[in-house]
Design a protein around this nucleic acid. Structure first.
Lengths: 346, 346
DNA sequence: GAGGTTTTGTATAACGTTCTCTAAGCCGAA
DNA sequence: TTCGGCTTAGAGAACGTTATACAAAACCTC
């Protein structure tokens, strides 16, 4: 199996112990700075470790507990909102001894499930799942074994912590903004429910509820219209094509993700519709994309970085056993108005 | 450490063996479909595994060789070119038993080095490193132990495989295009060399050489001008500000990455310069970003997806010992002209 | 049916850690 | 001195897998 050229043994704890003239148990203790080591011992061992360039073997550690690894699951690496979250996680964990590894599984529930399983098999210490499409039951079963933070879904559970955005409020902000500009035909483009996954309060559901509620508040209940689309450029494009070529074309479209909003924009563009003159478009997440010079998309800021760092903090508390009851943190969204929205027919 | 609620034991190979009434060795053989198992045994064991919902413990496997994990290192998750590469890797490995885990380390050489180390510590079977900023020596040392594919850097080595784009040619395509439009003051925005890393042929170096050579070919050798900037929106913005506010402002700017090109664009925008009328902008990588309706950035396509799948294929060949000499694959770039380039002063 | 070969299943020793126990050493108090 | 208590170091048993070595059984061939 192993090629001849690829030999070269790893330095193990045994090597360190021998080199320092102590037992492996002692070395282990020093590493974990456990109770019962003299300063002399400390120094001797640390010196030996440095000299030999020793690095603990994570797989071996995994057999006896910790691996000092945190897994982050996300569906689509192209949604830059996730990059914001990830930055938050990374910044929070930067100075710790934990390593963050990302599983980018794609949209399929089965692929995501496989990836989460893989993380558990690799004995990761904790998991951060960003709006998983996997069935709720599976996540709960997982969470029973491995500390878990779920980002996005509003369903609470005693088994895992949650970090969510007040998506209902966010939707309200958008509708308020559009209505105040004079829009009445406001359509929502939101992710398709992952059927049978048993999450009852996914971000898209909460968003949709918020939208419906706000439309009612503005006496636009009868104009309520929701179109389902994957949160990707392509998904938004398809939805845009459907919406903007049909009859009673909406004067404003709000999407549940910036990427999707840009897809709608492309559709509008191809159909010869000007933004915002002919149709206003609003995104969600306020990713860097929305702020590009040529884009300038009105969007809702969710403080992705904060969500990430909060999730990481909560997770570590759990991993290290400093807290044993579940917690849900809610972030407050904020509307960022740019040039993709204006009064209808302006 | 472990909370009371988080008990629940894993199903192990021993459980399966007992349940099927055979030895653990037999179960292990069935899993690896090794030589010396009757079909009767096969069935018995597989049935037991299914009934118990057994999943092999990757950490334990790691202690004795394979972990069936492939690590991918990248600096900036926001560069969507990397998403293309990653998709390629994922598609290639999708049907195999390998899991892909991503380390997003950021630009710092030390953070990247830490991440690569972590991957090796976790006993990953193989590594795909996308334009690592880590020192060459370190990568080579690593590659001696773990099969490795380097994407981006043109430096060859017997120790690892390489997948590169003919960046020199790509730069030539851009200069040719711009020169044919009548541009003479063409400035290149390229990544800062990671000093002391000892890579002598990084993508940016090769790109710069190609640019210089092409400028010479068009008798524009004296107009050659290179500006260093990180391949991020922010990096491009800063470079754009410097270039476009200075004297003898270039009529065309080509950047080594689409994200950076968009940063330049933002600078132009803020300075009241129209693209392409006042300044032409060209990106590199032809990411989805470049094709956005409101962007339409001329760029160079590098077939990121192919690079990813090729890298994955090469890596698996090595991991499974089917090849023992290093290989370098070069992709051919292709110019995609969009609306961000035009004749100067048009 | 004896001798040989092939097939099939098991026992068991790793792999590199962690962690519980126990032993040894030292101190001060009785 | 002896005893109890405390600190420090080490022995050794896990953890879940793989792979080697070997025994047992089955199949040949003459």
């Amino acid at each position: 199996m192993q090629q001849g050229s690829q030999r070269k043994k790893r330095v193990t704890i045994t090597d360190v112990a021998r080199h320092a003239g102590v037992s492996t148990a002692a070395v282990s203790k020093v590493m974990r700075n456990a109770y019962g080591v003299s300063t002399a011992m400390q120094e001797k061992v640390r010196e030996a470790m440095a000299e030999l360039g020793y690095r603990p073997h994570a797989a071996a550690r995994g057999m006896r507990g910790r691996t000092y690894t945190i897994g982050v699951l996300l569906d689509n690496i192209r949604n830059t909102f996730f990059a914001d979250i990830l930055d938050g996680v990374r910044d929070e964990l930067h100075s710790s001894e934990y390593t963050v590894l990302v599983g980018a599984a794609g949209f399929g529930a089965d692929a995501q499930s496989k990836t989460v399983q893989a993380m558990v098999d690799r004995q990761m210490d904790g998991l951060i799942l960003i709006a998983p499409g996997t069935s709720r039951a599976e996540i709960l079963a997982m969470a029973e074994t491995t500390p878990t933070v779920v980002i996005g879904h509003h369903d609470r559970s005693d088994l895992h912590d949650s970090v969510v955005d007040a998506d209902g409020t966010g939707a309200g902000l958008v509708v308020d903004h559009l209505a105040s500009l004079g829009h009445r035909d406001i359509t929502l483009v939101s992710a398709p429910g992952t059927r049978s996954s048993k999450w009852t309060r996914t971000p898209e559901i909460v968003l949709t509820n918020g939208y419906t509620e706000a439309m009612g508040r503005h006496d636009l209940g009868d104009r309520t219209r929701v179109c389902r689309a994957a949160y990707s450029e392509e998904g938004g494009y398809k939805a845009g094509m459907t919406l903007l070529t049909g009859e009673d074309r909406p004067t404003a479209v709000m999407a549940g993700a910036d990427v999707a909003a840009l897809g709608v924009w492309r559709a509008a563009h191809e159909l010869g519709l000007r933004v915002p003159e002919d149709v206003s478009i609003v995104g969600y997440n306020n990713t860097a994309l929305a702020d590009l010079a040529t884009v300038q998309l009105t969007s809702v800021d969710q403080a992705g970085h904060d969500m990430g760092s909060t999730a990481a903090r909560l997770l570590i508390e759990r991993v290290e056993g400093r807290r044993d009851h579940a917690v849900q943190t809610t972030m407050t969204p904020r509307l960022v108005v740019r040039r993709s929205t204006a009064a209808p027919g302006a």
